[in-house]
């Protein structure tokens, strides 16, 4: 496995950020879940199973399939995680992205909330398309669908739902989060002052 790991990381490097973004927006429910756990587990599995991947040109879709499967496992196991004490929890990666402005954070939180209003399949399709950059044909294979039309119609309805939610909640969301913005400003000032 060690001999193949360098090759694995060579393949991983170009799609690394795509994988994190996909994993983050697929599993993130306004900080209720730790997407790093899912990402870390997916990477470990991918690293272990890399020699089983025969067609290396399909590395990206293979990686995304693993992330999808692990996210499902994560949701399923989430119930049991509540009973694991903090000492027993394994050490996890920290991939926090800290370059966002307050406005960016608002936009992303609104998008996350909108994404979480979609069904699991809809959310997966739109994220594979928008963040993974996969074609409809590739999404059909990743999601094990029988026809292209089902993926197309799912993508179209997901877009409509997302837009509808974002337009409807844009103003409310910002006003509701005014306190958070103020808190955030105070925190930034405190950090600057040391």
């Amino acid at each position: 496995m060690i001999t193949d790991s360098n090759e694995f990381f060579e393949y991983l490097k170009p799609v690394y950020s795509d994988c994190i973004r996909f994993c983050k927006y697929l599993t993130k429910d306004l900080n209720k879940f730790n997407y790093e756990d899912v990402f870390q587990q997916s990477m470990l599995i991918a690293c272990e199973k890399f020699n089983t991947l025969i067609d290396k040109s399909k590395f990206k879709s293979w990686m995304f399939t693993i992330i999808l499967r692990e996210s499902k496992n994560f949701y399923r196991k989430n119930f049991w995680r509540k009973f694991i004490s903090i000492e027993d929890s394994p050490e996890t990666l920290n991939l926090e992205y800290t370059q966002d402005t307050i406005e960016d954070i608002d936009k992303k939180n609104l998008l996350i909330t909108a994404l979480n209003k979609l069904s699991k399949k809809e959310k997966e399709s739109i994220l594979l398309f928008e963040l993974g950059g996969f074609s409809i044909e590739e999404i059909k294979d990743i999601q094990n669908e029988k026809s292209l039309s089902s993926v197309k119609s799912r993508l179209s309805s997901s877009r409509k739902k997302l837009l509808h939610f974002i337009i409807k909640n844009k103003t409310d969301y910002n006003s509701n989060n005014r306190e958070t913005l103020e808190d955030e400003t105070i925190k930034i000032l405190q950090r600057t002052n040391g």
Partner: peptide, 25 residues
Amino acid sequence: YFDEVRNENYDKTFNKTKYFILEKS
């Protein structure tokens, strides 16, 4: 909205992840 997300770049954390995964495995 998706452009904002696509702009998130994690390349700086690649090496950290690489060693973490290697150590774990």
